Simulated scan of single mutants.
Amino acid sequence: MAGTGARYFFLFLVGLVMGAVLAVMAVRTWQARQDPFPDALMHVQQWHAVQLKNNLEANRCNATDTLPHFSALRSTADDLESAFPDLRDDARFTKAAGGLRAALDAARANPPLNCPALGKTMESIGGACKACHQDFRG
């Protein structure tokens, strides 16, 4: 009788392991079908925004410290409609994306030369980001 219980337990463990392996395979297959571009674009933009915040906190607010990040943010802002094709025709989305590009164009045209000015510029850019995130971020 002890042998029968051990067999059932062994079969249970085999089924459990096979179920776990199949579940991992299914999740990986689902992940492989997802487009990584939207998340990657948002991560890159967030990284540059954090670098600007870190510069502000470290009192490194010269144009030479901020312009590379403004330029990178502006360059990636050109890809927003491509990254979110479902929203490309939504007027709120295109308005928010255009507002972000306008704020970044202003930041590059007249880069802040001190920390208070950088703070105001970052508020402008953050407001443009927030306009989109309020409507479309899940």
Rank of each mutant, 00 (worst) to 15 (best):
F9Q: 04
L11N: 10
D86C: 00
L41S: 02
S71P: 00
K53N: 11
I125G: 01
V27P: 03
D90V: 04
L113Q: 15
G138W: 04
D79K: 15
R60D: 11
A83Q: 05
L100S: 14
A63G: 06
A77H: 06
Q46M: 09
G138P: 14
A107F: 03
Q134E: 13
M1F: 12
M122G: 00
A109T: 11
D65P: 07
A26C: 12
M18A: 14
Q34F: 01
D89Y: 09
P116A: 08
L67C: 03
Y8Q: 10
G138C: 01
L118D: 07
R137C: 03
D135H: 02
K130N: 07
Q31V: 10
R88P: 00
L52V: 12
F84Q: 07
P116T: 11
Q45A: 05
L22R: 01
D90P: 07
L67R: 15
R92Y: 08
L118M: 06
T121D: 04
M122Y: 14
D86K: 12
G99D: 12
D86E: 13
R92K: 12
S82H: 12
L56A: 04
G15S: 09
L100E: 08
D135M: 06
A26P: 13
C129P: 03
V27C: 04
V17H: 13
L16R: 01
T64S: 15
C132D: 10
G98E: 02
D39W: 02
H133S: 02
